[in-house]
């Protein structure tokens, strides 16, 4: 696996797989490409929202590989992965709801699980499998949660009720799925959390309601300084909302970077192969698909001189296409599964 991406970090997020954790093809620091900032270059994020170090968790049929991850305050991290990739496990570790087998978890400056109660007082958590009490009204939920959360913001809650178009005295079981998601979001947001953890909150919503929920979420987050971790297997949702992107598959953190940097780095290039060899002995190429005399290259390390370098090797560059986040994600997962 070419995993220099695991070493790549944006200004706010860091991830790597520690050497010796059994990650095949792990590139040593000396092999990193110029121009890519590394953990060593950046040092640790000062006062991160959370910091995971060497965190791992094993179940009978699933293993979250040792991972390091940090998030700078005030940023939104989109966590993308297929079903069963380990997104929920990772987020539940951040919530202190799952204790890792090894490694250290620090959230909002305090260690978990020791300070779980205190940390959860400053986190808003919404997950796809979270339900409210069906026989109770939204008003009851607000009244009860207000007694549990000291920093509950009642006026903000009322604003959100209005913005989300909810009815306080309607029983939860009478709400549509979209309204239930909005109600759950309201109960998380009005806690005024410093960190908002959203585990696939848009799953199961129809496209219209999903857009509505995301619009509301963006609106709500616009003026906020809180950090957000947003997981989804829907790349479109993550692309809309996130500052940073992380890909996860089969319990491994594959790549993480600033969204724009990630989109800039990945290209699909169509090339007519020249006579001079070697053809693509280039560590920037991640996937090669042949189609007669044409070759389609996918690279996660594109730079402006790259096409020129191919031409110098005698290849004719026909097209250089930007890739959508979904295409990048699929390529990265395919690469991982091929053991590239």
């Amino acid at each position: 696996m070419r995993d220099e991406a695991l070493q790549l970090v944006g200004p706010g997020i860091q991830s790597d797989e520690s050497p010796g954790h059994g990650n095949p093809g792990h590139r040593k620091p000396g092999h990193r490409k110029p121009g890519h900032e590394t953990r060593e270059n950046l040092g640790s994020v000062v006062d991160p929202t959370f910091r995971l170090r060497g965190v791992e968790k094993a179940y009978r049929h699933f293993r979250l590989a040792p991972l390091d991850l940090e998030l700078e305050s005030g940023t939104i991290l989109g966590l993308i992965g297929p079903n069963g990739a380990g997104k929920s496990t990772l987020l539940r570790i951040l919530m202190g709801l799952i204790r890792p087998d090894a490694g250290e978890v620090e959230v909002l400056g305090r260690r978990l699980p020791e300070f779980g109660r205190e940390v959860k007082g400053e986190i808003g958590f919404v997950s796809e499998d979270m339900r409210l009490y069906g026989g109770e009204t939204l008003r009851w939920h607000i009244d009860w949660i207000r007694t549990v959360i000291p920093r509950w913001d009642e006026s903000y809650a009322r604003k959100l009720v209005e913005r989300f178009g909810l009815v306080l005295d309607q029983k939860i079981k009478g709400l549509s799925h979209g309204q239930r998601v909005k109600a759950t979001l309201l109960l998380a947001l009005a806690r005024r959390p410093r960190l908002l953890v959203l585990d696939e909150p848009t799953t199961g919503l129809d496209p219209i309601v999903r857009r509505e929920v995301l619009d509301e979420l963006l609106q709500v987050l616009r003026d906020e300084s809180r950090s957000v971790v947003f997981s989804s297997h829907n790349t479109g949702d993550v692309e809309r909302i996130s500052d940073y992107i992380a890909f996860i598959d089969s319990g491994q953190l594959l790549e993480s970077d600033e969204k724009e940097s990630l989109l800039d780095r990945w290209r699909r290039i169509r090339v007519r192969v020249g006579s001079r060899q070697p053809v693509f002995e280039n560590d920037r190429v991640t996937l090669i698909e042949e189609d007669g005399g044409l070759v389609r290259l996918t690279t996660g390390s594109f730079h402006p001189d790259y096409a020129g370098e191919l031409a110098d090797c005698g290849h004719e560059v026909l097209e250089v296409d930007r890739m959508s986040l979904e295409e990048i994600f699929l390529s990265r997962v395919e690469m991982n599964r091929q053991g590239a």
Partner: peptide
């Protein structure tokens, strides 16, 4: 009823 994630998301150990 999947209300456990809601309760455990609150500041309760």
């Amino acid at each position: 009823e999947q209300t456990l994630p809601f309760v455990l998301s609150l500041p309760v150990a």
